[in-house]
Amino acid sequence: MSAILVVDDDPAVGESVRFVLERAGYAATGASTVAAAREALMADDTALCILDVWMDGEDGLDFAAEVARSGAPFIVMSGGGPGRSLESVTAKADALGAVAVLYKPFEDEELLNAVRATLGKKSSEL
């Protein structure tokens, strides 16, 4: 069964996002480093990737570009970061084809709406 991959270097954030997804009936897995996320992306049938853009000193947007190339749909989460405005994150995420950009802290419904829209769209294509 395809799962939603949640990538955030802060375990508390990753856990809380999976908490919402699982209570809504989705299967979710987590990764807290870019390396682990890359591995999971290659190994599993990832239906959707939800990722933070400031991770482990690496630019999360670079990883977002990798995800985009893999063909998996993705949702970007951002809470700012040194020297980065929310506007610039949104612009770059949009350019990469992100389904949605969520600013932490976001409402559960914002997340679930974006997930439903993506997975619903994806199943209609099949």
Partner: peptide
């Protein structure tokens, strides 16, 4: 200040987000 504000925003959002999720639950 810009850098600091960005870092601070990142830290706080990571703390606040789970708190919001569990409070709503």
């Amino acid at each position: 200040l810009n850098d600091f504000a960005g870092a601070l925003a990142h830290e706080l959002s990571n703390i606040l987000h789970p708190a919001g999720v569990y409070a709503r639950a």
